[in-house]
Design a protein around this nucleic acid. Structure first.
Lengths: 141, 141
DNA sequence: GTTTTTGCAAACCTTTTGCATTGGT
DNA sequence: ACCAATGCAAAAGGTTTGCAAAAAC
């Protein structure tokens, strides 16, 4: 049995065509690739798969609940998804070409924890998005 | 002429009743208060002002363009606004009671700048939202 | 009086939901 | 066979837009 099927089962999800296909798309993506539901829907169409947009949303939401993917709210009104990896990471997004770089920085995390403590909060989640211009290799769209 | 009227003129916006009223609402808010368009619309209704929701959106968008307010995308699908103050600040939001605390931390900012530099980016904007539970005085809704 | 702004309603866009049908085990 | 998952279309929620009427200047 394939690897992705095991992942799905582990998450308590039946192995269905839409779920497998969507998982494969996410899996194939490189680091920094983030897909909207619409993106995935279009990719499925190109592959000739007959999957409804509603199903894409449902599957992504299930994947998120199962911890398989993370959802991000970048600026611009819609959510994007990526396969959850071991380590939490933050994002820097080029506002011109849309390129996304990811990074992990313990100094930032620690300082955030300190601040939360000072303010009397217990952190459950955090989102840091940096926006800017990538100074080299920016394929300005 | 009143102070808020000057602010509006300075921003190149004509002094109209909706704009003044909305500016006043934002001005009266305490630190940590953030309003959605709907919030402001309801407040206007309570004040007996006959302002349409579409106008609230338009005015807030204009205020944002003029740099008078900042728009934030907290989790939950809708935007919230606050009067722009001199200093940029980050937010920590209680996921139970919705309370928002603001903070400014140069250590965080500097580290973010370093990271951006390492990755070859010039930062134009950033958003850090911490989510958690306020351990004291949480009016759990 | 001219131009900008407003209110209303309709459109829009992303996401969710209801329900009959299909598909996995 | 059974129950879960899907497709479709319709609804929902937040936001934007077209346009005639009203308000600024």
């Amino acid at each position: 049995m394939s690897l992705e099927n095991q992942e799905l089962r582990k998450a308590g999800l039946k192995v269905t065509l839409p779920r497998v296909k969507i998982y494969q798309i996410l899996e194939k993506a490189g680091e920094g690739d983030h897909f909207s539901a619409e993106d995935i829907y279009k990719l499925l169409m190109e592959l000739g798969e007959d999957v409804g947009l509603a199903t894409v949303y449902r599957v992504l939401t299930q994947f998120e609940a199962a911890g398989l993917v993370s959802r991000h709210h970048f600026e611009g009104g819609h959510s994007v998804f990526e396969l959850a990896r071991d380590e939490d990471h933050d994002h820097i997004v080029c506002v011109k070409c849309g390129k996304v770089r990811e990074f992990v920085d313990n100094q930032l995390i620690q300082r955030q924890n300190e601040i939360a403590k000072e303010l009397g909060f217990t952190i459950t989640d955090r989102t840091l998005y940096l926006y800017g211009l990538c100074t080299e290799g920016c394929e300005k769209k």
